[in-house]
C-alpha cells in the first residue's frame, strides 16, 4: 500500500500510451499506478500553485495592457551601477543563475538519495538551501533598492502606478515560496543526515516510515519554485 511500485506482473501487463491512460483511470483503483500518493499529492498541490501564480501573472498582464500610462522599463529599473556604467538587469540575471544552480544541486541530491549516499545527499541539500537563501537575500537587496528609490504599491517615479503593486505581489509571493522551500530543505536534510530514511524512522508528525522518496518530493517543490521564476523572469523582467 505504502510502496510505490506494484508487483512485477502488474507493471509488465500494463498498457502504455493513451490506452494506458484509459486503463489507469478506469481501473477502479488508484489512477497513478507508479507514483506513490505522496508524490501524486505534491504534484496536485503544485498544480494548484500553478493556478495561483497563473492568476498573478494574468493580473499583471491585465494591469499592464489596460493602463494608458507608459510601463516603467524593467531593463533600466533593475539596472545596477557597476564600474561607472549601468548594466541592465544584472542582479536579476545573477539571481536566475543562482536559482538554476540550486535546482541542479537539488536534482543531484535526489539522485544520491536513491543511491543511499546519506552524506552526499545531505550536503547537496544544504548547498541547495544555501543557494536558496542567497536568492532571497538578493531579492531583499532588490526590494530595499527599489523602496529607497521611491517605488510603492501605489506609485513610482517612472510610470504606471500598477508597476509597484504587481512587482511586490509577484516577487513577494515567489520569495515566500523560496523561503518556505529553504526551511523545508533544512528539515529534510536533517532527517537524511540523521539516517532516518535508512532505518525507516517514523516521522514525528505523520508517523509514516521515512523513505528516500521524501527527498524526491522535496525536490519537486524546489524545482517548481525554479520553474515559476522562469515565467516571472520572462514576463515581468524581460517583456
Amino acid at each position: 500500500m505504502a510502496q510505490t511500485i506494484g508487483t512485477h506482473d502488474e507493471t509488465s501487463l500494463r498498457p502504455s500510451g493513451l490506452r494506458g491512460v484509459a486503463a489507469d483511470f478506469s481501473s477502479d483503483q488508484r489512477a497513478f499506478k507508479t507514483a506513490s500518493w505522496g508524490k501524486a499529492m505534491m504534484w496536485i498541490f503544485l498544480l494548484s500553485d500553478t493556478f495561483v501564480f497563473g492568476c498573478f501573472l494574468i493580473a499583471y498582464m491585465t494591469a499592464r495592457m489596460s493602463t494608458p500610462v507608459a510601463w516603467p522599463n524593467p531593463s533600466e529599473v533593475f539596472a545596477l551601477h557597476i564600474g561607472g556604467e549601468d548594466v541592465p538587469l544584472i542582479l536579476i540575471a545573477i539571481m536566475t543563475f543562482v536559482l538554476i544552480s540550486s535546482s541542479g544541486t537539488m536534482a543531484m541530491a535526489v539522485n544520491f538519495g536513491y543511491r543511499r549516499e546519506r552524506g552526499r545527499t545531505a550536503a547537496l541539500m544544504l548547498l541547495t538551501a544555501l543557494l536558496g537563501a542567497t536568492f532571497v537575500s538578493m531579492q531583499a537587496f532588490e526590494w530595499t533598492k527599489l523602496i529607497t528609490e521611491g517605488v510603492r504599491p501605489w506609485e513610482n517615479p517612472w510610470g504606471a502606478a500598477q508597476f509597484g503593486s504587481t512587482f511586490f505581489m509577484i516577487t513577494g509571493f515567489h520569495g515566500t515560496h523560496v523561503t518556505i522551500g529553504v526551511i523545508f530543505l533544512l528539515i529534510i536534510a536533517r532527517k537524511v543526515w540523521r539516517g532516518d530514511f535508512d532505518v525507516e524512522r517514523r516521522g514525528f508528525f505523520t508517523s509514516r516510515k521515512g523513505r528516500y522518496e521524501a527527498v524526491e518530493i522535496m525536490g519537486l517543490y524546489w524545482h517548481f519554485v525554479d520553474l515559476v521564476w522562469v515565467f516571472i523572469f520572462a514576463f515581468f523582467y524581460l517583456w
Binding site: S16, A31, W43, G54, S103, H223, L227
Partner: peptide
C-alpha cells in the same frame, strides 16, 4: 527541461503527465 528531467515527468506514466500538464 525542468519539468521533464529535473521533475522526472519524462519517466512518469501518461496518466499522471496528462492529469498535471493539461489543466494549466
Amino acid at each position: 527541461l525542468i519539468v521533464a528531467v529535473f521533475m522526472h515527468m519524462a519517466w512518469e506514466r501518461l496518466a499522471l503527465v496528462y492529469a498535471i500538464l493539461l489543466p494549466p
